[in-house]
């Protein structure tokens, strides 16, 4: 079975680009543009990797982690994505259960490498 990746990001431009990338790289791709959608998608069936934008139209991306943890369906690895990250935001992401915080835009080779590393 293919590795399932959930892209949580409110910009369709970015989700389109990532969908092409991960589909070509052999992943089963799903997308969510809001906190509510991400919680729904994440609860439907197990997610291996979640790429999580921290700023979403209906709330903070980290709320998704909390909601999925309550439903006992946290992804195997969650990588937070942000345009800017200081030490305090990084700490909140790691405390919320993210495996790492990536600064956007992430070169695609680096992104694929990070995902493989966290799934290993």
């Amino acid at each position: 079975m293919k590795t399932r990746i959930l892209i949580v990001e409110d910009s369709p431009l970015v989700t389109d680009a990532f969908s092409v990338l991960f589909t070509e790289a052999g992943y089963d791709v799903d997308v969510a543009a809001t906190v509510a959608q991400a919680v729904e998608r994440g609860g439907e069936r197990p997610v291996d990797v979640m790429l999580l934008d921290l700023t979403l139209p209906d709330g903070d991306g980290l709320e998704i982690m909390e909601a999925l943890r309550k439903r006992a369906c946290l992804p195997r690895a969650t990588l937070a994505m942000t345009g800017h990250c200081d030490a305090a935001s990084r700490r909140s992401c790691i405390e919320a259960g993210c495996a790492d915080v990536l600064i956007k835009p992430i070169p695609i080779r680096e992104l694929l490498r990070q995902i493989e590393r966290h799934l290993a």
Binding site: S11, L13, V14, D16, A17, F18, V20, L21, E24, A25, G83, K104, P105, P107, I108, R109
Partner: peptide, 23 residues
């Protein structure tokens, strides 16, 4: 600046996908 960053990130990702020969 924030709003310029998002579409630019998408352009770069698409171009990288092409450059890497994934398509």
């Amino acid at each position: 600046s924030h709003d310029l960053r998002t579409p630019l990130a998408a352009i770069i990702t698409h171009a990288e996908i092409l450059r890497e020969g994934m398509l």
